[in-house]
Design a protein around this nucleic acid. Structure first.
Ligand SMILES: [Mn+2]
Ligand SMILES: [Mn+2]
Ligand SMILES: [Mn+2]
Ligand SMILES: [Mn+2]
Lengths: 219, 219
DNA sequence: ATATATTTTTAGACAAGTCTAAAAATTATC
DNA sequence: GATAATTTTTAGACTTGTCTAAAAATATAT
């Protein structure tokens, strides 16, 4: 059974929300992510349940079935491969790729995506540091932490961003911070959790709203 | 004003039909090409006329406005560039590209298509020999003729196919005929217009339904 | 020129996906 | 545990793009 573009977007939203909360995914959470009204979401949940892509019990949250999870992960695989393509082959910067990838992820052609994978030399991560699921839906999880939880005195490598909005990515570009940047934690302010960091031999102070959006790994 | 995927497909259909007939494009011709009923076409024609993409007078044929023509040609440009990409970069054969290009042609991103153009080294023709319109909607017309109209005793180069269905292209592959193949016309049968040709040092007889679908240029 | 055939348009209906407003269920509060 | 606030679902409507069946216009044939 083929999935429509809209159904695919719902599955992706449900998948992403379910990654952050363990419990069933609520109607309102989906509505917020999809930017639709809760009543529209309820309608769609019935359709997805009919297609055995989610388990849905009225008034309880929903969960992806294995079939639904595989469909969602396949869309995410395509999204991230296209983002790599745009950056590596078409000179896009990492803050320009998301919207185009949102369109490209719905193109249906297994050969297209397998060949793209090969053209890009089987990348494991997208331009924002997110892992690219393999053909079987397996995702390689790494032991990254959020920068706000890093320890004073330690040095880290930047391995990913959480917020990949253009504004945030441009802030990082301005300070020459990207994947692979070395970040040494000089000090952590108790009052507002802001951090003093040494990056590229310069000292920079970041507020909590920024350090909450960077993934790092201990060197 | 943004165009929907469906509107774009109608504009493309109208453009292609108008290339073959000079007169206004009829409702039925569009219905046949789009594979929809005439009543559906009438509904869409009203929408396209409201958007100033076509001129439409009830019971008379329709014509593209300049705005409509530019939109159609832009979709065709994208379609053909994607076809080149699929063949040159992703190892597709020329009979596999059309359906995927039908999807990709609707992706909206000027930067994407300009960068793709550069990646492919600004190709002038797609894998089927069709010209790729430039950024301004200009199309380079060449002096090709249909093989069925070629003269006995002359030698030609194959420069394009008209029918780019998978079946026809596979027939050509089987006989090692492609763009650039040299075709010498040995004889033309009066009775059924079939032609005896020398291609790749071998003699081959082609029926009119085949010679009607190959574009050639005198050497 | 009149009758017939074909093409095109209109009228009314349907599916997908969305909305608003109201009802029902769940959760939070006192 | 009753009441209030929040969440979720239902009911009914709208838009886009499609269909069938019937009416209107145009084209063809005698
Ligand atoms: Mn993205
Ligand atoms: Mn990404
Ligand atoms: Mn094509
Ligand atoms: Mn082509």
């Amino acid at each position: 059974m083929l999935t429509t573009l809209t159904e695919e977007n719902y599955l992706k939203a449900i998948y992403h929300i379910s990654q952050t909360s363990k419990k069933g995914v609520s109607t309102n959470a989906i509505a917020k992510k999809i930017d639709a009204k809760a009543s529209s979401v309820t309608d769609m949940l019935k359709k997805l349940a009919d297609k055995n892509l989610i388990t849905y019990i009225k008034y309880k949250g929903v969960n992806l079935t294995e079939k639904g999870r595989l469909t969602a992960v396949d869309i995410i695989r395509k999204h991230r491969l296209w983002e790599v393509f745009l950056v590596d082959k078409l000179n896009f910067s990492w803050d320009e790729v998301h919207d185009v990838a949102e369109q490209l992820e719905h193109i249906k052609s297994p050969k297209l995506i397998n060949e793209l994978d090969a053209l890009l030399d089987f990348p494991t991560h997208d331009p924002h540091g997110d892992p690219i699921p393999d053909k079987n839906g397996q995702i390689q999880r790494t032991d990254k932490i959020v920068l706000s939880q890093a320890s004073v005195g330690e040095t880290y490598t930047c391995v990913g961003v959480i917020d990949s909005s253009s504004d945030f990515l441009k802030y990082l570009d301005k300070h020459q911070i990207g994947l692979g940047s070395k970040i040494h934690v000089i000090e952590k302010e108790d009052f507002d959790q802001s951090m003093s960091l040494e990056i590229n031999s310069k000292t920079i102070v970041m507020s909590k709203s920024i350090t909450n959006n960077l993934f790092v790994k201990k060197l």
